[in-house]
């Protein structure tokens, strides 16, 4: 029955536990507090260890120093500036990856010919760790923005393509047949059946893609940059400012978390029809 449609469109990994939309019950909130307890304790211990001289503050800045460095960087406008540069690189790279691979995913997913032409090629390329292409990219594109954006685009590419391709192939052919007899033409079938059917998988891919996009950004920004979070970190290294380096790391972590939350919010909005979400609503 309709359960089949779900089995076909939603992979198990696409249904992580989600927080309810609004007003979590008290015990859930307490659990959330408990989850932060250990990290907060560790930070306090770290600060204490630095204070009593157990950790060399030259090698690892204590939390208080990191916080004040962060504050200075924010107040001076440096951090926002570099953050913006980095975000722009990720945004452009992701946009390129999305357009390129959604079209390729559609071509490969929708026709046997497309699959033979596109899929085999991409699967072969996938075997190559994309960071190994850095030297070539530098030769081709120089050490400017182009290389950084290309790295982000390439890194984000495969997860998006692979999950979209899988998602499209997983769409229940019975639904397509129903669409055909309801008078949908090919374009309407793609819009109403194939793309929504592939969406749960594609969003999983998007989440992976964001992860690898950050990874490529870190690598790209450390090659040779004059702006961006990576530059901030590399620059701080020259002056042994471990506090600033750690601020950079924290920003990377927060960016990763934020991206993940973004995709989750997107999932909640676009996948509201799925039973796991319906029950929580």
């Amino acid at each position: 029955m309709s359960g089949q449609a779900i089995a076909a469109t939603a992979s198990p990994s696409a249904t992580p536990a989600r927080a309810p939309r609004r007003g979590p019950p008290l015990h859930r909130r307490l659990i959330n507090v408990r989850r932060f307890l250990v990290p907060v304790l560790l930070v306090i211990l770290w600060q204490l260890a630095a204070d009593v001289g157990l950790i060399s503050t030259r090698l690892l800045a204590p939390p208080a120093a990191i916080a004040s460095a962060a504050w200075e960087l924010i107040a001076s406008g440096e951090l926002p500036y570099h953050l913006l540069v980095s975000l722009q690189r990720v945004a452009i790279g992701l946009a390129i990856a999305l357009t390129a691979r959604v079209s390729l995913g559609l071509i490969a997913g929708l026709s046997k010919l497309g699959e033979d032409a596109v899929d085999a090629t991409l699967q072969m390329l996938r075997a190559l760790p994309f960071l190994a292409l850095v030297p070539l990219f530098i030769l081709w594109l120089g050490i400017g923005e182009a290389t950084k954006i290309a790295l982000v685009a390439l890194g984000a590419t495969f997860p998006i393509y692979l999950t979209l391709f899988g998602g499209i192939r997983g769409v229940d052919p019975k639904l397509l047949e129903a669409g055909r007899i309801l008078g949908l033409n090919r374009a309407e079938q793609i819009r109403h059946i194939i793309l929504p059917g592939a969406l749960p998988q594609a969003l999983v891919g998007l989440r992976y893609a964001l992860g690898t996009a950050w990874l490529s950004l870190v690598v790209g920004e450390q090659i040779n940059a004059t702006a961006g979070i990576g530059f901030l970190v590399m620059d701080a290294r020259e002056f042994l400012r471990t506090d600033i380096i750690l601020v950079g790391l924290v920003v990377y972590a927060l960016l990763g978390l934020g991206a993940d939350q973004l995709v989750r919010a997107l999932e909640r909005r676009t996948l509201a029809w799925r039973p796991s979400l319906i029950r929580e609503a």
């Binding site: 029955m1 089949q4 449609a5 469109t9 019975k174 047949e177 109403h192 969406l199 029809w273």
Partner: peptide
């Protein structure tokens, strides 16, 4: 059809 074949993502 024997199974309803509704699109689950449309109301």
């Amino acid at each position: 059809f024997q199974e309803p074949r509704l699109l689950p993502w449309k109301p």
